[in-house]
Every structure is written in structure tokens, then in C-alpha cells.
């Protein structure tokens, strides 16, 4: 039996499951600012983020030759999300000298299997639960 009122609206398969390229993104910011980068990475559906402590070697003033401590954030972001991530970073880097940093994207050639690809691209998030599914879930929990 099918209930037309609660039927799942038709969505083309391509809309949810189109293959998208992935970028391996490296973001270098001053120490203590990795939290913001993690936050915008999450907003842009980055599946994995890794924060490392690093040292910058670019010395603006050679007389004050103190290497700067940096936070280096490695993340994997979908190609279509890069523009949004980049725009947010540009805004952030323009706030002040302390907020400056760099980021660059390296395209990934391959990943180890479909499940890994799905995890990295956050594919499950596209599959929004329908109202029918929500009701069923509610009944299960109550019953």
C-alpha cells in the first residue's frame, strides 16, 4: 500500500549523488585561531579536520627574527564548497594583521572506496528525512 499524501517527493538521483571532486585544504593561521577555521570547515561540510602546531618562517622584520607559532589545519572539502570557504577566509584574513593567514587547495585524485568517498563528501547529509519517515520513527520510539 502506498500513501500518496506522505510519499517522498521525487528528487533526481543526480541532485544528491553527483560525484564531486575533493580538495585537500591546508590552512595556516596564527596560534590559537584554529577554532575559527574548524568552525567554518564544519559549516562548509568538511568531513575531516586535523590541527597541527607549526612554526612560520616568514619574517617580516629580519631584526626581530622570532619565528611565529602557527596552527596548521588540514581538511578535506568538496570542490563546490571551496568558493564559500575561500570567501569566509578572505573576510577573516582582512580583519587585522593578527588574523592573517594563508590557505591553499590541492585536488585529490582518488580515495579508497565508495564508503570513504561518501564519508568525505558528507553524502548522508543530502538525504533529508521525509515527513513520513519522521512519523514512523516517532511511532517506533513511542511504541
Amino acid at each position: 500500500m502506498s500513501d500518496n499524501g506522505n510519499a517522498k517527493p521525487y528528487t533526481p538521483y543526480e541532485a544528491n549523488h553527483r560525484l564531486r571532486n575533493l580538495f585537500f585544504v591546508t590552512t595556516v593561521v596564527s596560534q590559537g585561531q584554529a577554532d575559527f577555521i574548524l568552525q567554518i570547515s564544519k559549516t562548509n561540510e568538511a568531513a575531516i579536520c586535523l590541527v597541527c602546531r607549526g612554526t612560520g618562517t616568514y619574517l617580516r622584520d629580519e631584526t626581530m627574527a622570532i619565528p611565529e607559532k602557527k596552527d596548521v589545519v588540514f581538511s578535506i572539502i568538496r570542490e563546490d564548497r571551496w568558493a564559500s570557504y575561500k570567501a569566509t577566509l578572505e573576510e577573516r584574513f582582512a580583519v587585522s594583521k593578527m588574523a592573517k593567514g594563508i590557505a591553499y587547495a590541492i585536488p585529490l585524485d582518488s580515495v579508497a572506496g565508495v564508503s570513504i568517498y561518501k564519508m568525505l563528501t558528507n553524502t548522508r547529509l543530502f538525504e533529508q528525512p521525509t515527513s513520513a519517515n519522521k512519523e514512523k520513527k516517532g511511532k517506533k520510539n513511542n511504541g
Binding site: 580538495f23 571551496w82 575561500k86 577566509l89 578572505e90 584574513f93 592573517k100 593567514g101 594563508i102 590557505a103 591553499y104 587547495a105 590541492i106 585536488p107
Partner: peptide
Amino acid sequence: SMPVTDVVGI
């Protein structure tokens, strides 16, 4: 070396 497609902050 690895090719970089896009850069921010430089």
C-alpha cells in the same frame, strides 16, 4: 611538489 589549484591570503 604538489599542484595547488587555488590560494587565499597571499
